[in-house]
Amino acid sequence: MLDQKAYEILQIIEANGRLESNKIAKMVDLTSEEVDQYVKELEDKNVILSYSAVVDWTKLPAKETVTATIDVKVAPKRGVGFDEVAERIYRFPEVKALYLMSGAYDLSVVIEGKTMQETARFVSERLSTIDSVLSTTTHFQLKTYKHDGVIFKEPESDKRIVVSP
């Protein structure tokens, strides 16, 4: 079981994975070595799975991709439920995220492709052909406003007039 310090460290790392141990230590009233020990233990227990950056790819047009969210209706299999079909889907390299959902659809799949055609081919040729998949609805992402808690907005410039004596 995790103690309160572990939860505090996790919240800090989730907000900023690049923060140095000595800074985290000051924030949670521990030594840098104790923070490193907590982090290693959390990584070993697979509580911390990965560290990542939020990138605004629109600033690099040559690297832009097409992102789609696909709602998938599935016929679950006896004994394994949705897990077996979910595993087949998340193994595709185009799949960036996969969630079991409540509501009209069972799975929500987030994929990335180089073009809209490539993304459409993935849905029609790979995803829809899986036996348990009954139907899909594809939503293409047009613009990102916020992702993983980060707002994608240019900082506003200071429009005040400089006054000097």
Score class of each variant (00 low, 15 high):
residue 14 E to H: 12
residue 58 T to M: 12
residue 128 S to R: 15
residue 85 V to N: 04
residue 122 F to G: 02
residue 125 E to N: 12
residue 59 K to Q: 15
residue 121 R to N: 13
residue 17 G to M: 00
residue 83 D to T: 09
residue 53 A to S: 11
residue 38 Y to A: 06
residue 150 V to I: 15
residue 25 A to L: 06
residue 19 L to K: 14
residue 44 D to P: 03
residue 37 Q to R: 12
residue 12 I to L: 11
residue 50 S to R: 11
residue 83 D to F: 09
residue 58 T to L: 11
residue 104 A to T: 13
residue 159 K to I: 13
residue 120 A to Y: 01
residue 6 A to V: 05
residue 64 E to L: 13
residue 93 P to G: 06
residue 62 A to E: 15
residue 34 E to G: 07
residue 9 I to H: 03
residue 144 T to G: 09
residue 9 I to T: 03
residue 119 T to E: 00
residue 52 S to V: 09
residue 29 D to N: 07
residue 103 G to A: 05
residue 39 V to C: 08
residue 123 V to Y: 00
residue 165 P to H: 08
residue 43 E to F: 09
residue 118 E to R: 03
residue 48 I to S: 02
residue 131 D to T: 08
residue 46 N to Y: 14
residue 46 N to E: 11
residue 69 T to W: 14
residue 12 I to K: 03
residue 73 K to C: 04
residue 6 A to E: 06
residue 92 F to Y: 13
residue 142 L to I: 15
residue 122 F to P: 01
residue 52 S to R: 12
residue 39 V to G: 05
residue 113 G to Y: 01
residue 115 T to K: 04
residue 72 V to N: 01
residue 150 V to P: 03
residue 152 F to T: 04
residue 68 A to T: 00
residue 49 L to C: 05
residue 71 D to N: 09
residue 33 E to C: 02
residue 20 E to W: 03
residue 13 I to T: 10
residue 100 L to Y: 13
residue 114 K to F: 09
residue 84 E to M: 06
residue 112 E to F: 02
residue 42 L to M: 10
residue 65 T to A: 10
residue 40 K to C: 00
residue 5 K to S: 05
residue 129 T to S: 12
residue 80 V to H: 00
residue 25 A to R: 07
residue 41 E to A: 13
residue 27 M to K: 13
residue 153 K to S: 12
residue 71 D to Y: 14
residue 90 Y to A: 01
residue 48 I to F: 04
residue 28 V to H: 03
residue 59 K to F: 10
residue 38 Y to H: 15
residue 108 S to A: 15
residue 127 L to H: 06
residue 78 R to K: 08
residue 72 V to M: 05
residue 105 Y to F: 09
residue 20 E to V: 10
residue 54 V to F: 06
residue 29 D to T: 02
residue 47 V to G: 06
residue 114 K to R: 11
residue 18 R to I: 02
residue 155 P to L: 12
residue 129 T to H: 09
residue 31 T to F: 06
residue 124 S to Y: 08
residue 77 K to C: 01
residue 39 V to M: 09
